[in-house]
Design a protein around this nucleic acid. Structure first.
Lengths: 255, 255
DNA sequence: ATTTAATATTCCGCATTGTTGAATCTGCCC
DNA sequence: GGGCAGATTCAACAATGCGGAATATTAAAT
């Protein structure tokens, strides 16, 4: 959260931004609550909230401040900012249908993964939306697919910055093991996640690149582990994902 | 844009927020560009951008700064913040299918309408997404449906604050005419838009309320005017929208 | 390669402005 | 109606944001 190197940043703007983040995490809050949370005087928080409100970033419901819908406009903009982002949406849905799994499209930002599109099919009630959420690249199929498109040097940089925290006992926590696996992924063209991020969930990921080999993002499909076994998991499912990835790359290069 | 009353707001936080808005409008920008645009010293803009970047709100691509994907997370949060928002999504899609029109679900914020869900059906290429965009309540079917749930006093307040700007020659620009029409809408239960916002587009809107009559939002369907004529427009289409609105209210009150 | 121009970034002193505790106002509960 | 908790306003001070100038960086031009 807080500024790492903290150099040459504006303190007051920073608290304004922190308030936005806290309002999301707390699902709305009152002045005093935020003041205690951020260890500021209530009057300070108040002036920040007033500023945010005047600019449409927060709304006041009674005495509770909430994030305003203006952020939906900005969020929608970033989700559609690039052609690749717009095109990938349809393919994510298609992938979910074909695979009967939860399908996602992710991209990299600052060495972490971000969910750009998620689609769970009609039924699959995937608790709540992970849209826009960040995740560690080494913990997921899509993340490892992304990493496999990068040079070893860049991967090391990312490891240095974010390390390899474990989430389950299967998470890769050793950088050599990771680099080895990335090599395999480069050869195969797709990645596996064997309960490395969430116990009981397996997944398959495939990276997508543009005409000049620039990395764009990655697709992945995930499902409860007991439904992903044998050749379906190791052969057929990867082929489905590869197929959609290819279709995407074709449309992307043509348009 | 700029702060109207400008009372008790923090200047530097305000420029930070202005930068976010400008980055969206300009679709990314460099330091100098923003500095000229906002009439600030480049060094000032630079420190703001550094702050935004350190907190994940912007990313730098070469020398161009763009809004960061963190905003997608916040935007997705606000879109799903209330139960009503989550439930309405499915009904908006259903409405689009049943009506073969573009369907939207909107809510009010600070006297203006905001698009919360939009669905255009498989084909209808509605140029670009209006998600999160604000609009004048008096110019649209959904907006007038929303207004019809409010007291005349509240409507007057909104008119005072936002006035009744015209968008086409059909836009209602007189407050008495508007109040009269709102009365009719209250009786009928649905509203019409006869090319009042966009030439060539007609629409039907219906408000939805919660168990305690609190207003939640409004559905509407829109289509090229030549496809919306006769009884289909005046009778059947309203019934479709009313039907979906009722289903929504039922589910909402039960869950 | 070398020069030039344009822009990004850093630095620092000054004035502005954000911060805060105290004062005031508001609404709620007993 | 009085007391309390929180929101909001206020004014004074110190901190910090601002912008001009210096420097670094990058791209283009010769």
């Amino acid at each position: 959260m807080s500024t790492n190197d903290g150099r040459r940043t504006l303190k007051s703007s920073e608290t304004t931004l922190e308030i936005l983040d806290r309002l999301k995490d707390l699902d709305g809050a009152r002045v005093t609550e935020l003041a205690e949370d951020l260890e500021r005087a209530p009057s300070t928080i108040h002036s920040h909230l007033t500023t945010l409100k005047a600019n449409g970033y927060v709304v006041k419901e009674g005495d509770i401040y909430h994030l305003g819908l203006h952020l939906l406009e900005l969020g929608n903009y970033v989700q559609n900012r690039k052609k690749a982002y717009r095109i990938s949406k349809g393919y994510t849905e298609q992938l979910a249908e074909e695979s009967k799994c939860r399908a996602v499209f992710v991209v990299e930002e600052n060495g972490r993964g971000v969910y750009l599109h998620t689609y769970s099919g009609k039924h699959a009630v995937w608790q709540y939306s992970t849209l826009g959420k960040q995740f560690y690249l080494h913990q997921t199929a899509a993340g490892k697919a992304l990493l496999s498109t990068l040079s070893d040097e860049r991967v090391e940089e990312i490891i240095d910055r974010w390390e390899l925290p474990a989430k389950t006992e299967n998470t890769i926590t050793d950088s050599d093991t990771l680099l080895d696996e990335l090599d395999q992924i480069r050869e195969r063209g797709y990645s596996f996640n064997r309960e490395e991020q969430l116990k009981g969930i397996k997944a398959v990921g495939v990276p997508v690149t543009g005409p000049n080999d620039e990395v764009i993002g990655a697709f992945s499909v995930a499902s409860p582990a007991n439904r992903l076994t044998g050749e379906w998991f190791s052969e057929e499912l990867p082929n489905i994902v590869l197929g959609v990835a290819n279709e995407f790359e074709l449309e992307y290069s043509l348009s």
